[in-house]
Design a protein around this nucleic acid. Structure first.
Lengths: 145, 145
DNA sequence: TTTTATAATGCAACAGTGATTCAATTGCAA
DNA sequence: TTGCAATTGAATCACTGTTGCATTATAAAA
């Protein structure tokens, strides 16, 4: 990705084309999958930019529409009675991204074919399924979906 | 749930039956879905036990096999180029619970029937699908699956 | 090229969750 | 009842995310 293209895209979006932004946007454009702030900071650890700057640049890029930001799940551990028929792995859960409410779902058979690097988990069914979105009451009250 | 049963189950598992453990285990046995440490601490905020004690009790209960512990997601935000064909919602991801590696999966049609409270998201397809388990290299190196 | 307004940066600090250390206290078995 | 190991609270640290403020750099105007 040419620096000139990155620079133009930044300026077209109303952002100044600073070194940190060129680096961060260039990195995300070359990445095969979404990156976390920590991974980006580690990749650029020899660069002159602080973690705070990289973090703010990611937020700036998101506000400018150049980057998408998602949290895959929720950042806390959950505990449940081990005797419950209803192990976390035994059926999928829907998690509301707004209020954190958790809803149990009926069992779903996925049938995902082989995928390089995770065939063991897939073939043995050793994984949890989680759906994430807004529950009805949160989407009624508005807010981003 | 009788306190005597809780007490016996704790002691059978090799744990002392302290007030905090009776309260935490009783709470989890009555809960309809998994609870987070924060939710438990909030429910018991008028109790004499500190957050650290409740937290350690949850870990103790898990080690004793009385409780199951899962993190439904990951504690970081991820960013990706907005221009990527490949929005986080456009296809499912597999997330390794050990090393954090993310793998993109082929599109899956779920066909979940109506579920009370989340019908809007389900019918409109407004949700992300995430699978969570151990990738092949992590399960080769051992460790809990 | 120089100037200038202001956007961007680094440093420092705070919040929330998770985790641990250590001295004081408690449970419970002898 | 006693004694010791298990448990507890307070404090503290790590990590991610976030913000305030003084300084610096960008990009446009002169």
């Amino acid at each position: 990705m040419s620096n000139d293209i990155l620079r133009k895209d930044l300026q077209d979006s109303g952002l100044r084309a600073t070194g940190a932004r060129l680096a961060v946007l260039g990195l995300l454009r070359e990445a095969p999958s979404p990156l976390s702030h920590g991974e980006i900071a580690q990749t650029l650890e020899d660069s002159p930019w602080s973690r705070a700057t990289l973090y703010r640049n990611l937020i700036d890029l998101e506000k400018a529409g150049l980057v998408r930001r998602t949290q895959l799940g929720e950042p806390v551990w959950r505990f449940e009675d081990a005797a419950k028929e209803h192990g976390v792995r035994s059926h999928p859960h829907f998690l509301c991204s707004s209020c954190g409410k958790m809803v149990c779902l009926p069992v779903i058979e996925l049938g995902v074919g082989p995928v390089k690097g995770i065939n063991r988990a897939l073939s043995q069914g050793r994984y949890e399924i989680q759906l994430r979105g807004q529950c009805d009451s949160c989407s009624s009250r508005g807010g981003k979906g």
